[in-house]
Each structure stands twice: as C-alpha cells, then as structure tokens.
C-alpha cells in the first residue's frame, strides 16, 4: 500500500503546469457571456412602473423624481445583490444586466447611479401595473 506515494506524481505535474491563479489586475478571469453583473437602466424604455423596486430583495432600487410624471429607478450598487431580478420583473426590458463586475469604489456615493432628469412631456405610454 502506498503511503505518501499517491500525491507525489501530482506534485511533479503541478511543478510543470501553468499556475491556477491569474495575475490580477494585469489579467482577469474571463466571465461567461450571461454573467450577472451590474444592472443598468435604459431610461428611454422605462415607464416608471416601479415593479423593479417592488421585487428587489436588497432594497437597492429607489424610485426618484426626475421631473417626469412618474419617478424612475436609481440604483445603489453598494446594496445590490446582483440577482438580476429587477431585469426579470421589468416588463419594458428597461434594465439590462451587464457583465461588469469590477465595481470597487472609494465612496458609497460613487456606487450610486441616478436616472438623468427628464422634461415633463416625456409621458409614460403604459399605465402603471400596481397589483395583480
């Protein structure tokens, strides 16, 4: 019965094989195409219905006044759990999940993304879906 023999060939193999880690930040581990990274709002599509905020498990979405009839979502990536539920709950496809995941910042403020101000005439086409 081998005693420590089992692991020795493995050790030699590892001596010659490439490292399992990468030299971050010079190179990064690639992520698959549909990786769940930072959710981003496409404001033109957003109707301001608030469904995304209702389902966000991390309270990372706040509906803020942009001067239009309905408020639009502002994201706090410091709270976001990157679950992509907001994109799924949105019926207007106004939230896209990007693969962006290097999100470190120096302040909490830098992790917030507010919708840009809008003029009043940009009215939503769809009525709000409140409760079912």
């Amino acid at each position: 019965m081998s005693r420590i023999g089992k692991v020795i060939p493995e050790l030699f193999k590892s001596l010659t094989s490439a490292p399992a880690t990468v030299d971050f930040p010079k190179s990064a581990v690639p992520v698959p195409p549909d990786y769940r990274g930072k959710p981003v709002l496409i404001q033109e599509k957003c109707t301001g219905c608030g469904l995304c905020q209702r389902d966000c498990p991390a309270a990372a979405i706040e509906m803020v006044d942009v001067g239009a009839k309905r408020p639009k979502p502002a994201f706090d990536y410091g709270r976001c759990a990157f679950c992509a539920q907001c994109a799924e709950s949105c019926r207007s496809d106004a939230i896209v999940i990007t693969g962006e995941h290097h999100l470190a910042a120096f302040s909490r403020e830098a992790l917030r993304a507010a919708p840009r101000p809008e003029k009043k005439e940009e009215e939503p086409q769809e009525p709000a879906a409140e409760q079912e």
Binding site: V7, E10, P32, D34, Y35, R36, A81, F82, A84, I97
Partner: peptide, 27 residues
C-alpha cells in the same frame, strides 16, 4: 490536499457560473 481539491472545485464553480451567471448564490 486543500489546494488541489479547491483548484478542482474551481472547475465546478465555473460550470455553475456558466449556467446561472454566478459562482455562488446561483439564483
């Protein structure tokens, strides 16, 4: 043993990431 088994575990985590979009908390 710890290093080898965790290196191999990465392969599984990559598969989970491929299917679900995340390494842990696959949702």
């Amino acid at each position: 043993l710890f290093m080898y088994s965790w290196r191999d575990r990465e392969a599984v985590l990559d598969l989970l990431e491929l299917i679900t979009g995340n390494r842990v908390n696959y949702a």
